[in-house]
């Protein structure tokens, strides 16, 4: 019993860990907004930054930079702390910038001993009154971003648009992995049916397909909620959303096909053939075409997926268990469905 069913216990344990760790571990301190967000050259200004999960009043002086690129950064002349979530940095922007662009964006970098470094990309836009890169180069006093406090903490990265919704990575993304694994299992049973011809294999294939569809719908649902919070709409016609909807149509058709045939042998044979055929069209649909088209999803249109930007080491510690946990849970549900079907058949035969 325990030797046979260990994976069910494992799935429950992993999912418990995913829920607890995924929902309780805090985010890394970050910067949500700054004001003013645009200035002119030659101005002296006080930049007011609002932090997230930050503890500015604790632990030592705070340093601030406005970074243009790797060679050019401007240090704040003084930094004043106005509470745990508010910090005011005084900057003096030179008359000319060392670029030949009218508007240049600067990244805000804050560093403190307790929070470590936090970054807000394109925080401030600087408009040049007159463009002279050579003058700018001469006038520029570079103060490189250095000696940042980097220490590892058990936190999830703070991404400006994502915020707390980054935790959905443990629920939305594993749904797709689990769906794929479950559909693969279903195809394996269909192949086995065609080779060996045992009706049990067909029932298993059907059960796995059902659960795969369930996971697909859950993936769409969690994705839609996530999209509402980050992209602004439940359905934005993103290529991955559309392709997934089509993929689900393909699998709904599988059940329509099954309903057509009376004879169980014929039903099993033809739906097994369709299942294999449908699965192989799923691969270009979900994994090839979205990568070639522009998409809002990471991993499409040349964006890296699972790069260090999306998934850091702390997140990996939860993400991979989540994938395994959800997949095992799916297999468990499919197993129950199959056994229920078997009992129903047995009751009908009596």
């Amino acid at each position: 019993m325990a030797r046979k069913n260990w994976w069910k216990a494992l799935s429950v344990l992993l999912l418990l860990y995913v829920f607890i760790a995924g929902l309780t571990v805090p985010l890394t301190p970050g910067i949500t907004t700054v004001s003013p967000s645009s200035v002119r050259t030659g101005e002296s200004f006080t930049l007011e930054a609002t932090g997230y999960n930050s503890r500015y009043t604790q632990g030592g002086p705070i340093r601030a930079w406005l970074k243009m690129d790797d060679e050019h950064a401007l240090a704040a002349e003084s930094v004043e702390v106005a509470g745990d979530r508010k910090v005011k940095a005084f900057f003096r922007m030179p008359e000319y910038l060392p670029v030949d662009r009218k508007v240049q964006d600067f990244t805000l970098v804050l560093d403190s001993e307790v929070d470590g470094a936090s970054i807000l990309p394109s925080a401030v836009f600087v408009t040049q009154d007159s463009i002279d890169p050579e003058m700018g180069q001469k006038a520029w006093t570079n103060s490189p971003v250095a000696q940042l406090h980097e220490h590892w903490t058990m936190t999830y990265p703070f991404r400006n648009i994502l915020g707390e919704t980054i935790r959905n990575t443990y629920f939305h993304v594993p749904m797709w992995f689990a769906m794929l694994f479950i559909f693969i299992a279903s195809v394996v049973y269909s192949v086995r049916y065609l080779r060996k011809g045992d009706l049990g294999n067909d029932n298993k294939a059907e059960a796995y397909t059902r659960v795969g569809i369930l996971f697909g719908l859950m993936g769409l649902g969690t994705g839609a909620i996530w999209a509402k919070n980050t992209w602004g709409a439940y359905w934005s016609g993103d290529v991955k959303q559309n392709m997934t909807a089509i993929a689900l149509l393909i699998y709904f058709a599988y059940f329509v096909l099954r309903a057509v045939f009376e004879d169980p042998e014929k039903k099993a044979r033809i739906s097994a053939v369709y299942n294999i055929f449908a699965f192989s069209t799923l691969i270009p649909l979900i994994y090839v075409i979205p990568r070639l088209t522009d998409s809002l999803h990471p991993g499409s249109g040349g964006n890296p997926a699972f790069g260090s930007q999306d998934l850091d080491n702390t997140m990996r510690m939860v993400f991979y268990p989540a994938v395994i946990g959800w997949t095992l849970l799916g297999f468990w549900i499919a197993n129950l469905l199959y056994r229920m079907e078997k009992i129903q058949l047995w009751l009908m035969e009596r």
């Binding site: 392709m243 393909i250 058709a253 449908a278 649909l285 075409i289």
Partner: peptide, 9 residues
């Protein structure tokens, strides 16, 4: 029913 979703890609 069967062919339309399959032909979309």
């Amino acid at each position: 029913i069967l062919s339309f979703p399959l032909i979309i890609p």
